[in-house]
Design a protein around this nucleic acid. Sequence first.
DNA 1: CCCTGTGAAGCAGTTCACAGCG
DNA 2: CGCTGTGAACTGCTTCACAGGG
Lengths: 218, 218
Amino acid sequence: MARDIPDATVARLPIYRRSLVDLAASGAGTVSSAALAELAGVNAAKVRKDLSYLGTYGVRGVGYDVKLLLGQIGDALGLDVVAPVVIVGMGNLGQALARYGGFSNRGFPIVALVDAASDRVGDEVEGIEVSHVDQLPALVDELEISVGIIATPSAAAQSVADMLVDAGVRSILSFAPTILQVPDTVPLRKVDLATELQILGYYQQREAAPESDAGKSA
Amino acid sequence: MARDIPDATVARLPIYRRSLVDLAASGAGTVSSAALAELAGVNAAKVRKDLSYLGTYGVRGVGYDVKLLLGQIGDALGLDVVAPVVIVGMGNLGQALARYGGFSNRGFPIVALVDAASDRVGDEVEGIEVSHVDQLPALVDELEISVGIIATPSAAAQSVADMLVDAGVRSILSFAPTILQVPDTVPLRKVDLATELQILGYYQQREAAPESDAGKSA
DNA sequence: CCCTGTGAAGCAGTTCACAGCG
DNA sequence: CGCTGTGAACTGCTTCACAGGG
């Protein structure tokens, strides 16, 4: 069982996985680090170093067994265990996330939706009824929810995070553009769309100014 | 004019900006690095080092002037120039992004929407008519669009990226879970929702296993 | 002979700690 | 005397380069 993988490597494992799924689908039995690097948009040395943290599974002179490697990455990421998800906040973003197929596919079924606005409670999205946020602890318990997605306005985000933690959720993904305080036993990741655009703004303007090079590629 | 700011710092500037906007709204005239660090969820030394790349704007013994600093960060990020945005792909995610208010607010007005499916062309979302993807070059040119957001399925993403680049878009934000090839004069950022969940999966499982510590907080 | 696995070098980002200014 | 600004130490990630197995 793989332990203690560097953060930077963990962040790349899902990308390798995606490439490997494609390779498996197209019938490839093995991949070299160079080929996988090409698909994942990184360099070959990084691939080898990253995979070495999972244990040793490559064959010298040949490459890595696609299926075996898929299994190893899945194990490292804990994908063998299904992690049911609740989405909190059924505004535009929450609804879009609920309808987005990419989660359930990959071991993260959305099993509950909640909102604080009573006029949204009772709506059905993708076959799931929207519950009132008061029901959160009960839902987490009954449905064994382990991941909470916060898609509420910033103002509500911290109290939602507290509720999720109290209810026993094991990790949180937040789309609210605000800093959240959670116990460090609960991993938290943040995605802020406006932040991403602002970062692009820097490199874009830099590109325009006639001075040295720059730009994040891939 | 601030040049050559480290990537890690650039990625934090929007976060400081958010905190500063709040501070300005609540009437604060100055902030210390410690106070700003608290709000932004980082440590004080990092705040000072980051801000030092913008030039020197703090007053020793007092702190930073909130408005002045806001202006400096805005300049560094190029927020003085409005950057019109086109969203490509009007599925669930594209529609949600179109309706999400957080962009226009912050200098990134959404001015065009396109899709390849003819039955979506002509729909109106937030007062903007969906155009056919063939119109992309014309729209980019007429509306002086500088940012393209890709919200299409993976399979279409590379060809959309190529079209955006050819049309003259200056930076790209992609939600497609695939590696895109763009010239390195066009900054590209990627957001992949399923990847985020898989990363959480690692830390979550790790938390469960009784061994050392872990977990990303903030 | 090819491709992995990995020490070692190199580089970027973070944190420390303190000199110096208001 | 408080808080900034910054050299210097440190930590962690990336890249190189090559030994060694199939």
